[in-house]
Structure formats: C-alpha cells, structure tokens
Design a protein around this nucleic acid. Structure first.
Lengths: 361, 361
DNA sequence: CTGTTAGCGCGTTCAA
DNA sequence: TTGAACGCGCTAACAG
C-alpha cells in the first residue's frame, strides 16, 4: 500500500510540508492562493491520497464508528446498520463492522479491536443477555467498554445497558420501549381474541426477549386474562420453526382458538412456516403476531400483525449520541450520560390476527 | 481517545520499547519468559490497547477490508456482507462499510476513503451500470480504482468489472453466471408454461439486470418461444410494485396465461403485492419467478420460483481474492489478475410458477 | 537476547 | 504568511 506522500507533493510544488498540509487538509491558516494552486496541482498529478492513519495518529481522532451486531444478514440488524451508516455519513465518518453472533466475549474482542483502531464511538446493537453462561463474558465486556469510555470513547447501546457497565461519561443508551409496546400489543389482541395465548420467546435471560414477554403478560393481566404459557427457543427464524410441533399439537388438541405471540418477526415467520407444513393455517386455525415490523417481511401473507420499530432511527440515534452528546445532554436534564434518546413504536394489527368473520368454503 | 502507550508499559515493566513490542505483538524474536511475564502484567494493569493506527503506519498494512454496497439493508447486499465479514474474520481483518445507493461518484468517493485508510483490499458488491448519465462517474471510479491497485491495493468486484477499469494487477472479478442461469430458468419455465412471458427489469444499462434479461430471452428463443416484452422499472421492491398496473391490465385483457420474470426477488415480491391488490392471484391468474433466492423471502407464499445464488460465498470469494491471490492465480492459468473464481447457482421452481392442475373451488 | 535508533506520514507548535 | 522541528505510537533494522 505505498502511495505518494505529502512530502513528495510538497517537494514537487516547491513548498514545505507544513504549507502543503495546510493547503490540502482543512487548516485555520490559509496560504496564498497562488501557492495553494501549485500544491493542489502537484497533489493531483501525483495522485496524492492523504493517509488517514497518519492523520488519525497526529490528531488522535480516527473518524471511525464501530458497529457491533449479532448478524449483519439479519434484517433487524441490517436496518439498524443502515441508520448507523447514515449518521456516519453525516458526521463524515466511516463505519467499522463487527458481527459477533451475540457472544459477549466476541463483543469484548470487537470493542477491543475498535478501541485499538481508536474509533471515535462504538454502537452496540445486539440484545444484552443475563444468562449465567454469559456472566464472565459480560463482566469482561463491561470492563473493556468502561476502559474505552474512560479513554474518551463514546458508546451507544441499543435497548439495554451492557450488564454491569458503569454509567461512565460517554456511555449512552437508546431506550426501546419493548415492554410497553408488548403490553399494548397484548391489550389490543385481547380485545378481539377470546381464546388462550402462547408466547414463543427467545432464550431465558435475553433482555429484549424477556422485556417483550413481561410486557405481553402484563397487558394480558391488565385485560383480565390468564398468563400465557411461554415456549423458549432460539431468537431467530430457526427457533420459531422448532417451536412449531409443540404448537401444532396444542392447536389440534384443543377446540379453543390459540393466539401466538412470537417475540420477533422472523421467529413468527418460522412458526408460521412450521405450522403450515403441519396443515395448520393462519389465521384460520390460529392467529399469530410478531415484533419489529421488518420491512422485507411486510409483503408476507397472511400479513403479519406486529409492532413497528423505527430501526433506522434507532441506529441513527445510537450513532448520533456520540457526536451529538451536547444536544442529548441539553434535552434530558440529569442522568445525561446514560440517556441517548428514546424511540416509540406502534402496534400494527394485520391479517395474521384477524378473527375470521365466518367460515369460508 | 488517549490511552496508555507502549512506552508507558515498557517503563512500568522496566524494559525497552522494543522488548515490550516483541512481547505484546507477534514478533519472530521471542524474549525470555520471565521478562515477557513482567511486560504482560504491566500491560494488563495499565489496560494497554495497542494503537492499530500506529501499527498500520509502521507496518504499512492496515488490516482493513473496504466493502461497498448500494444499501446495507437490502437482503441481497447484507447476505454478501455476511460473507465478506466472515472472510475478514478469518483473515484477522475488519470490515469498513460504505453504502452508496449505486451512484458511481459516491463509489469513487468511497474508494478514495478506503484508499486513505490504506485498506488492504476493497470489495465492490453493487451492480455496475453503463448508463450514459453514469459515464463520467464510471471513468472517475475506474481511475480511482486503478490508482488504488497501482499502489498495491487489491480489488474484488462482484459480477462485472467496473466499466473502463484497467485489468491491473490486484484487480479481481467474481463472476456470477447471471445470463446462463436466467437462460436455464427460461428453459425450465418454458417446459411447463404455454402462454406468453413478460420480463420486469431494472433500468436499461444496469449490467446485472441486462444480463438476466438477455439470458432469459436466449432461453426463450432456444425453446422456440417468442421474445418476452420487457418492462423497465426500478431495480427494487418499489420498482416491482410500480410495474403492477401495467401487468394487471395485460393479464385481465387476455385469456392467455402470463408468466412474469422479475429480474430479482424483491422486485418479484413488489410485483406480487401490486397484483394482489388488484385482485390478481399467483399462481391462479398468472405465474412469476424472481432471481437471487433471498433467504428472508423463502417463507413467502406462494413460494417464489427463483434462481439460487450463493451470496455469502460470493462475498467470501470477493474478499478472499485479495488475501488469497496466490491460490486464485494457481487455479486459473492465464488472466489471473482478473479472475477471482466463479460461482454457480441453481434454478428453484416453486409454487409461484406452478400450473394449477385444475380449477379449485 | 535486549536496547537504541530511525523512520512510517502527518499535524502543529514555534521562529523567522 | 511560510518553514523547520518535534511528536503521535509503533515496528524494524541495527548495535550491543
């Protein structure tokens, strides 16, 4: 990766390094236009590309935003990534990507790598977990983040603070009202559904999943309904699919109509696919709702009832909380290094939870 | 972003910089274990994180892979991104992300930014375009890439070479047999479909789209069928949706069954949604096929006939062609700086192109 | 085997 | 305004 350097440009233009630097990169002091033109010309003929590494080293600011996701191919994360990317663009920065499949230790490693690259800020988009097997990983991740923040880094976390993380300066959280929205969803569903409810959830300890389960149960309770049974499975499409057989059995065994709440859309899709292969049709034989309102899934049939989440905005906010700390602080009085803004969602009832008016042919 | 430096560690451990460096970062020379332990301890208590920028500057190798996509939230690109990410992980590198919405000038800028960061290699995943309005952008992009390659950079392009790019050392292309696969698709469809065909394509000049159109027409011709009419629209879901009305009209006007080929899956989904809103049902009133076999869309009903593309492998290959140049060169005899490997796909006929056996109730 | 030294490419003080 | 010199943090030649 050899390329022409600033000193080469300076020599060709017959000026000093300092002058060339002032011309080519934004400086407060503006050299004479005559000289400037010569320098620019020299840079052009040499095909000069400033070495960002060296600039970063000299200025100690890299122009990098680190983004940590579980899986970039998951539409949930790629939507957030788009938001982060957008914010980065506006801040004139670039996005460094890391996929960790959710393991705290991998995330710790990613944070360390970002810190090594002196990323200006880090966005952590994956759901936090409180599972015992993740305890050590969480501790180490928290320590790594803490150190990063202490060194002047900014962190934006989506959803929940990292377990055990200190409320350090520069540490921000984009709050996602998973619980309240799930409660609203339950309330609305309870209004039209008379049978029982079942929740297809992610592994115990996964905050996002747990929040949605808790909220849904609360909504049910508020509506005077008994708590739903909870099936634990993987937090992805495959997990939903695996939950299929148990659900099929329950549906076929009872005359009562069942309403399934899968804690995210891709799980709901997995469940639907599994049920379908068993001859159970939505919404004829049972109804189902998801969460996230994933864009790619909106054309699904039956249209999936779900909760819309402004994923792109979430990413933008998380990425922006680093650069726009001042604004965020101004908006919220106290506790301003924890708060990075919050977003709201919206319950979307669609065909998958419609109660059929009458039996079709 | 201040952090403890190597010299601080060295001082605390009572050794020289060089020794500390040798201990903490991989070096051929291994210091005595007693000293090494002291250094590691010092690094640990200081929370030392090596400055990758400085390392890169000294070694002139950044450990960065630049990835250029049109839109990271598009499942096609996020699947490729996953592959790139995976390859990066294996190479012990990190991925730098840039979304450009397909404008060559934006891509040029991204390449420059990657070059500035001294990325070891750059992967360009978006479709190339030969539209006249992109001519200047293509030229500049090609020039930028050329310079990058000449400076020792490696480039991996998915699908088509950048228009006008020199076949420079370090320039690789992952060939995607869009045309042949589209021809196969046409052949298989022609075997069971008796009516006319229509193609819903992207803008004229978009290589990926044009290739698929050409291949499909060729397959049709080989099967003794007349060429399909081509509707030009946006290369995304919205484009497909917009093509709906025209298709509806055609379908309702004629008694003949129509088979639609949308040049990618998301367009096919858009078309399907539009038709459905007009009361046209797939595969009852018409059939449709897409291209890409997007994972998130596999649970769609009616199941979409399409052409499977190993997107993740494509990303892996494109990213690997930089690091594994030697292997790639060995595999292909001549022309080895252009060839980075090729992939194959597979026609997947599903329900969306099934001819109904008889009319249901 | 260890320590010293000279860059890597650039920003930024200082004098001039 | 311009230029010379130093330092950013680290690696890789040397010398010891």
């Amino acid at each position: 990766m050899a390329a022409s350097t600033l000193s080469e440009v300076a020599r060709l233009a017959g000026v000093s390094l300092a002058t060339a630097s002032r011309v080519l990169n934004g400086s407060s002091r503006k050299p004479a236009e005559g000289i400037a033109e010569r320098v620019r010309e020299a840079a052009d003929t040499l095909g000069y590309v400033p070495n960002a590494q060296a600039q970063a080293l000299a200025k100690s600011s890299s122009g990098l935003i680190g983004l940590i996701v579980h899986d970039i191919a998951d539409p949930y994360f790629s939507a957030i990534a788009r938001g982060v990317q957008d914010a980065a663009r506006q801040q004139n920065r670039m996005v460094l990507l890391a996929s960790t499949s959710g393991a705290p230790l991998d995330e710790r490693e990613a944070v360390a790598a970002f810190a090594a690259r002196r990323a200006d800020s880090i966005v952590i988009a994956g759901s936090r977990s409180a599972r015992t097997e993740d305890a050590q990983g969480n501790t180490e991740l928290a320590a790594e983040l803490d150190r990063y923040c202490r060194n002047g880094g900014h962190v934006g976390v989506v959803g929940h603070p990292v377990v055990g993380a200190a409320h350090a300066e520069g540490y921000h959280v984009v709050e996602v009202p998973n619980e309240d929205l799930a409660a609203s969803l339950a309330t609305e569903l309870a209004a039209s559904h008379e049978g029982a409810f079942v929740i297809v959830a992610g592994p115990d300890g996964l905050f996002t999943s747990d929040d949605r389960v808790r909220g849904f149960q609360r909504g049910l309770a508020d509506a005077g309904r008994p708590a739903a049974k909870v099936i634990r499975t993987g937090f992805n499409r495959a997990g939903g699919y695996e939950a299929g057989p148990a659900l099929t059995e329950r549906i076929k065994a009872s005359d009562e109509r069942l309403c399934i709440f899968a804690v995210n859309d891709v799980m709901a899709i997995g469940v639907t696919a599994a049920l379908r292969s068993d001859g159970v049709w939505i919404p004829r034989d049972a109804t189902i709702a998801g969460f996230d309102d994933i864009e790619t899934l909106r054309d699904f049939r039956p249209a999936l009832s779900t909760v819309y989440l402004p994923l792109e905005d979430i990413g933008r906010l998380a990425a922006g909380s680093a650069a726009g700390s001042a604004a965020a602080s101004a908006a919220s009085g106290a506790d301003n290094h924890l708060y990075a803004g919050s977003v709201s969602g919206e319950v979307k009832l669609r065909r998958s939870t419609e109660v059929p008016a009458e039996t079709p042919s």
